[in-house]
């Protein structure tokens, strides 16, 4: 649900993006408190990694043992692809993760499949393959640490982490 609501917000925020592009003065920094001002690099700046992370959505989730992309995941990745195409200075590393069920070795393999599934989707939407690296963390880097399905579901993820940037 969380992922969906972020995706729906994307349409609304793209209006702000358009405004900011037409109004360079709004990117002036300093007066962060001003009405309509967009602080470069802040989540309200549609060209910022923070915006990518929070508004576009930097992660997609998977079912147990699966690396196939759900319709929701495809929607998020579509947004990522559009953002990456609009911001060609960025490259990304897609991190594949698993929950703690399963052996260390198997989960490394599973994390790699998840990262690769996300990468292939972005490539299919036009993002150049040489901008997209993958790495598998298996079950080594959970973000949620409880041992219930609520946490497991959030840990079974592929996260697109922006690395290179010439912004700012």
């Amino acid at each position: 649900m969380n992922v969906l609501s972020k995706v729906l917000a994307l349409g609304a925020l793209s209006v702000i993006a358009a405004c900011s592009n037409n109004d360079p003065s709004a990117l002036g920094g300093g007066g962060a408190g001003g009405t309509g001002a967009i602080v470069p690099g802040s989540p309200s700046d549609p060209r910022s990694p923070a915006y990518f992370q929070q508004t576009v959505g930097d992660r997609v989730l998977f079912a147990v043992d699966q690396s196939t992309l759900t319709p929701q995941a495809q929607t998020v990745l579509q947004g990522q692809a559009e953002w990456l195409l609009a911001n060609p200075d960025f490259v990304a590393t897609i991190e594949g993760h698993a929950d703690e069920q399963g052996t260390r070795e198997y989960n490394l393999g599973l994390g790699a499949k998840r990262a690769n599934a996300a990468r292939e989707y972005l490539i299919s939407r036009g993002v150049a393959g040489n901008r997209l690296k993958t790495v598998s963390y298996g079950k080594e880097r959970p973000i949620e640490i409880c041992s219930t399905e609520d946490c497991y579901a959030k840990n079974r993820r592929a996260v697109t982490v922006l690395t290179g940037s010439t912004l700012g």
């Binding site: 070795e105 393999g109 790699a112 499949k113 990262a115 599934a117 990468r119 292939e120 993958t134």
Partner: peptide, 25 residues
């Protein structure tokens, strides 16, 4: 590529391991 899960052969001269290419291990 990513590589992991190595183990020595009994004579110590070679190793067997997992290699990930294109998401496949």
């Amino acid at each position: 590529t990513m590589s992991f899960s190595p183990r020595f052969s009994p004579d110590g001269r070679s190793i067997v391991y997992s290699l990930i290419q294109g998401g496949n291990t």
